[in-house]
Amino acid sequence: MKRGLYIGRFQPFHKGHLYSLKWCSDKVDELIVAVGSSDKSFELRNPFTAGERIEIIRENMTAEIKEKRDKIILIPVPDVGVHLLWTHNVDLLVPRYNTVFTNDPFTSMIYKERGIEIIHPDLINRGCLSATEVRRRIASDKNWQELVPAPTIKLINEIDGVDRVKKLYNLSKSHVTSDYCH
């Protein structure tokens, strides 16, 4: 059985994540989605809890890729602080896997050094489809909803996530600029 590992923070889950999730799940029999930085929340870069992110991803799977839902496993993975140790910590938390799906150069390097196959998932509209851009738009009252699937909008609104992101941006010294992706 070919089992892949797809790593992300999903802060929040956007249309690019959904596209990659579908793409990656087509390449393997089973896909483990490691929800990274699970120990972080209520921070500028990590506003949502691991539980909230898992709920958002599950809702998107139910709405958008029902037929693949049973072959996708969601597992929260905390940060360790030492990159090389982090990959081994992941191994303690998730089922065995043969492949890692990532476009992050550092993650690719670490897993390649361990002899694990790396596949770079297709990305769509990466210039705008990033969680950083979604958070920036939320904080600056721009149209963030166009970047995320409907279940993400619904759950962010249910948990009052818009207000949370705005408060976190206001608490930070690095205030949002007026630049955003059109």
Rank of each mutant, 00 (worst) to 15 (best):
K2Y: 07
G4M: 06
I7P: 06
R9P: 04
H14P: 01
H14V: 02
K15M: 13
G16E: 07
G16N: 11
G16A: 12
G16P: 01
L21M: 06
S25I: 12
S25Q: 08
D26G: 09
I32Q: 05
V35Q: 03
D39G: 14
S41P: 00
E43Y: 01
E43N: 08
L44K: 15
R45E: 13
R45S: 08
R45D: 11
P47R: 06
A50D: 09
E55Y: 10
I56S: 02
I56W: 08
T62F: 06
K66S: 15
K68H: 13
D70V: 03
I72H: 05
I75M: 05
V77T: 03
V77M: 07
V77W: 12
V80F: 13
V80T: 10
G81K: 11
H83K: 12
H83V: 13
L84T: 15
W86Q: 11
V90F: 03
V94S: 01
P95K: 10
N98F: 03
N98Y: 00
V100S: 06
F101G: 08
T102M: 03
S108W: 00
M109G: 01
K112R: 14
E113S: 09
I116D: 02
I116R: 02
E117P: 05
I119Q: 06
I119G: 05
D122E: 14
L123A: 08
I124H: 05
N125K: 15
G127A: 07
G127D: 12
R136D: 01
A139K: 01
A139C: 12
Q145Y: 04
L147V: 07
V148G: 11
P151F: 13
T152Y: 09
I153T: 12
I153V: 15
L155G: 00
L155S: 00
L155V: 02
E158W: 01
E158H: 04
G161P: 08
R164K: 15
L168M: 04
N170Y: 11
N170P: 00
L171K: 14
K173T: 10
K173C: 04
S174W: 07
H175Y: 10
H175C: 00
T177N: 07
D179N: 11
D179I: 09
Y180H: 14
H182E: 10
